[in-house]
Amino acid sequence: MSFGLSEINNRVKGWPGWVLLLVVTVSVLAVGSTRTSGPQSQEERIELISKRVACPVCNGESVAESRNNASRAIRNEIDSLVRSTPLSDDQIVAGLEDSYGTEILLVPRASGFDALIWVLPTMAFVFGVAGLAVAFQRWRVQADGVADPTDADRDIVAAARQVDLP
């Protein structure tokens, strides 16, 4: 009985099982990520825009989170812009940037000096992955014994010879 079960288990885990898995996952993901949960309400738009705008008097908090008067004023401004103008989210944020300056943006731009905040992490990731690739390459060469003996290897051999000699 148990042999039968493990045999079935093994067969299920073959390529057809994996292909089925892939098909199911991809199609459900496609359905889930393309359908919309109805039109965005004005409240949701206000919330999303508020999260992109920095509180002008506290460092790093968005006006969605901050409870002070300056933030409340900007929230109210966003509120009225969303409710009474046809402006898009980006246009509203751009308008706020014009009146309050670039420090109102919670996400730094990708240009000028500020671009570094995007470039440096990307470079760190690329260097990390490249470093790993180089390390694995070196380990493979080492494991295959293809590499020339290093000084350390020669030291070991020399030390071993000295021990062997009386």
């Binding site: 992109r52 460092n59 790093g60 420090e103 996400v107 730094p108 500020d114 570094l116 905040i117």
Partner: peptide, 22 residues
């Protein structure tokens, strides 16, 4: 992200904010 506003202020003389969306 935490020290970037310091760097910008020191090197570029501007105030900048790095917030949750970043």
């Amino acid at each position: 992200g935490t020290i970037f506003p310091l760097l910008v202020e020191a090197l570029d003389g501007r105030r900048t904010v790095v917030g949750a969306p970043y």
